[in-house]
Design a binder for these strands. Structure first.
Lengths: 262, 262
DNA sequence: CTTGCCCACTCGTCTATACGAGTATGCGTC
DNA sequence: GACGCATACTCGTATAGACGAGTGGGCAAG
């Protein structure tokens, strides 16, 4: 019997008051947890599950949709339902913007990716002036217009993050910061050259489900949340000189911070 | 016409190749975004949406389930489907474990909650010895057994976080740390009294969808991810003296870190 | 061998129907 | 007024069927 495609799955408990589609989801989840289905494995097809459990197709689909929203499986039209492979993870260390890392010329993203043995790219770089949202304006000291730098990052061909930096116009206009490529060390190096010595960053982190637009941009599987990070850079005079709004695919990141105990 | 319960919603585009249930979800989502349905408002009932769009009930339910997994709405059996209210948010500052905050006697959680005007509780406190998981053991320097302190935090009656602290047994056994209530300043104060002056913390942050067990423990609405934070405390000799594994309801938290630019 | 088509299999969308179960309201009884 | 019950309305669970659309393999024609 274990040779059938559903061999890793048991039978329903008709005396249970747990809904049938939940029982099916439980069994498949357990089979995945215990390794009876491994990453990338194909689950039994809907038709096979219908056969195995003796239920209707919609019930099976209901079960599978639970597992999808939990991020455990992905379905591929015309092919099957697969155990979701865990992508390689990028670690973001809290010292990634330390001054010593700015010497080398490449962007922090690419340097880190190469260190981890991954190929990375930056695409759809857009630079322009715009009116800031209320939130961004408040963080930057209420400028009427800002310079916005938008870009998307890819890791081994997969989009993992998109970010927008906002800078007050009076600070960034007619500087290398307004160029698509701001030069070695990135915009933080340029800011310091312009006399804004950086003092500290504030980072705010939230997690939530993505908007449909974010699902498209990051090609997110269902059941994958996003990490929303808003970083504000302050110079030694206490002025907010940049706000960076970043949305990351949560399954591709671990954030790491080191805090003094004092 | 705007007096009908579905007055905030438009009509379907039969020429679109976008699936009907997605179009319906799009319209409801837009109505929520634009404030035509506000937080806590009741959406039109499934029957009313069936009537309004002229589709079958399963199609409407399909649309609503999309919005549920996006965390936009919650359904209540026998009552209706409601725009999900945004709960009050707890801000966790990166200096929350600073030594100066440990003087006052109360736990960091309760002090912060009261400052924000919320009522907070800690429940289901369990303290005991156990064998550590591989991951925890690795972080603590591979002790064979550890002291585990589990507890759940509630904010205004709602569970928002549960956490487990692990400490090497040789360090915690027969000390106030092994008591349910470790005394003023919490276990960090006790560790320092025991001669382990704290040097720094490492925090690792991930976000993901909750397991069914976490859904129960935190009473999570569907479409709400969790933030998984693992903090390791090091003493001045470089020894890992505690690992704290925390799972938080993502809709209840904003994490905040301040980083030096040096 | 290569090309192109057909077909089987997969998941996606949608309909129509039935009954169960939780909630709230109003009404009648006490 | 307080209580309990009937009822209407809500969402939850499940069935059976139909057709569409993407994928991949096999087979026949070239």
């Amino acid at each position: 019997m274990a040779s059938s495609p559903s061999g890793a799955l048991g039978a329903l408990d008709p005396t249970s008051d747990r809904a049938v589609f939940r029982q099916i989801a439980d069994q498949i989840r357990e089979a995945i947890d215990k390794g009876r289905f491994k990453e990338g494995d194909k689950l039994p097809s809907e038709a096979e599950l219908v056969e195995h459990y003796g239920v209707s197709r919609m019930t099976v689909r209901n079960s599978l949709s639970i597992l999808q929203t939990e991020g455990l499986v992905v379905s591929e039209h015309g092919r099957g339902v697969y155990v979701r492979p865990r992508p390689p993870v990028r670690r973001l260390a809290s010292d990634r913007f330390a001054r010593r890392h700015r010497e080398q010329g490449k962007s922090a993203f690419i340097v880190e990716a190469e260190a981890a043995g991954s190929k990375s790219e930056v695409d759809s770089l857009e630079v322009g002036e715009e009116r800031p949202s209320q939130d961004i304006a408040a963080r930057l000291g209420s400028p009427r217009r800002v310079l916005a730098r938008r870009r998307r990052y890819l890791l081994d061909g997969r989009p993992v993050e998109f970010a927008t930096s906002y800078l007050p116009l009076d600070l960034a206009r007619n500087t290398p910061i307004a160029q698509p490529n701001p030069g070695p060390g990135g915009i933080y190096a340029r800011l310091e050259e312009l006399g804004h010595r950086l003092d500290h960053f504030d980072e705010e982190i939230k997690a939530r489900m993505p908007t449909p637009q974010e699902v498209r941009t990051l090609r997110l599987a269902s059941g994958v949340p996003v990490i929303h990070l808003i970083r504000t850079a302050y110079d030694t005079e206490g002025r907010a000189v940049e706000v960076c709004d970043t949305v990351m695919a949560a399954d591709a990141y671990v954030l790491s911070y080191r805090l003094p105990a004092t």
